[in-house]
Simulated scan of single mutants.
Amino acid sequence: MSSLPARYCAIVLLPILLLCGCASSRTDLAQVRALAAGADALNTFGELSQRHVDSYQRARPYLSAAEDAREQLLDAQRRAAQADVARLAQAVRLYLQALGRLARADAYDIAPELASAGAAIRAWPGSGIDDRHVSAYSILLQQLSRLGGAASQQARLSQVLHDGDAPLQDLLAALDSVLALYDKSGDNERDVVLGLLEVEIAYADTPQQRLLAVLAKSLQQSKSEEYRLAGLRHTLARRHLAALGRDHARLATAAFTTTEAGWMDR
């Protein structure tokens, strides 16, 4: 083809590559990634949820016949609701993980695709490649450059943060309500278990039952610590969810405000 007459139309890709990184940062990608890392807190929620489901099995040895009948009904309700509760937490986790991927530094890096297209082409009228095709090549690569880079990443992140904030806040509120229920249920279980142990220890306080009293007191101390730590975990989990909601709302507001400002400037 070198013998064919040609008119050169150099298409230098360096300016296009620069477009991918020249946009000023609006949404702090590091903060979005830190927010996404908060999905790990949902692992704690899952553990507390399982503890709640297992409540009847732990309390069963300490229940009277009437209490056992009531707790069996509650146990069935807890297990029936568990799947949907898990789906709520999973939806939040998947959303945050997707945000994290979207905020990766290389998420919108299309430099390899642009580089693989080559540095320039020229018109070869005798072979069917004329100036119109060279121009189309240039325009198509320009469109490709607009799909990548910081500008596209910022625009997409801003939209996702804004559109996702309201439903995320609703789901976090639902999980907070569930944790409050877990905490109340845990307190009820604690009162039943420790209440029975306290009564049994009082009746076992005789020389003949000394060993039984010692074992019961040891179990009482162990159970008291178990319920104290469970209550603390409920409190911390609720605080983590609240912080997650505040951080997302702040990023969503900041991203949408700066995006609106950008639209007004154009």
Rank of each mutant, 00 (worst) to 15 (best):
E189L: 06
G128H: 05
V85T: 10
A216E: 08
Y95K: 06
Q90S: 07
L196F: 10
A119E: 12
Q97F: 12
D170M: 06
D84V: 02
A105L: 13
W124S: 02
Q159G: 00
V85H: 13
A166M: 01
G186Q: 10
R79T: 03
L172N: 07
L211Y: 06
G164A: 04
E198H: 04
R104F: 10
L168I: 01
A98G: 11
L175E: 00
S135Q: 09
R146I: 03
A151Q: 07
G164L: 02
Q221W: 10
P207M: 09
Q169L: 04
A103E: 11
L94N: 08
D176V: 07
G148K: 06
L140K: 14
Y137A: 06
A117L: 13
A166Y: 03
L215A: 10
L157E: 10
A89G: 13
K217F: 10
Q159H: 06
Q82C: 04
A180W: 09
S127N: 12
L172P: 12
S135E: 04
A120F: 07
L141V: 02
D187L: 09
I110Q: 13
A173L: 07
L102I: 06
K184E: 04
Y108C: 08
G118N: 10
L215N: 09
I139H: 14
S158Q: 04
L211I: 05
A80G: 01
Q97K: 08
L144H: 06
L181G: 13
R104D: 15
A83Q: 14
A155D: 05
L215I: 05
A213W: 08
E189W: 03
S152F: 02
A213D: 05
A216I: 00
I110C: 10
L175D: 00
L181C: 11
L94C: 06
Q143M: 11
A202H: 07
P112E: 07
I201G: 01
Y203K: 15
Q220T: 00
D131P: 06
G164E: 05
I110T: 11
T206L: 15
Q221R: 15
V214W: 03
S218C: 03
A76T: 10
G118A: 12
R190G: 04
Q208Y: 11
D84F: 08
V192L: 13
R132C: 00
S152W: 01
D183I: 02
L99K: 01
D205M: 12
L181M: 11
A173Q: 11
I201Q: 07
V160S: 04
D131M: 11
T206R: 15
P125K: 14
P167S: 01
R93C: 10
E200T: 13
L140H: 14
G195Y: 07
G148Y: 07
H133Q: 13
G126Q: 12
G149W: 12
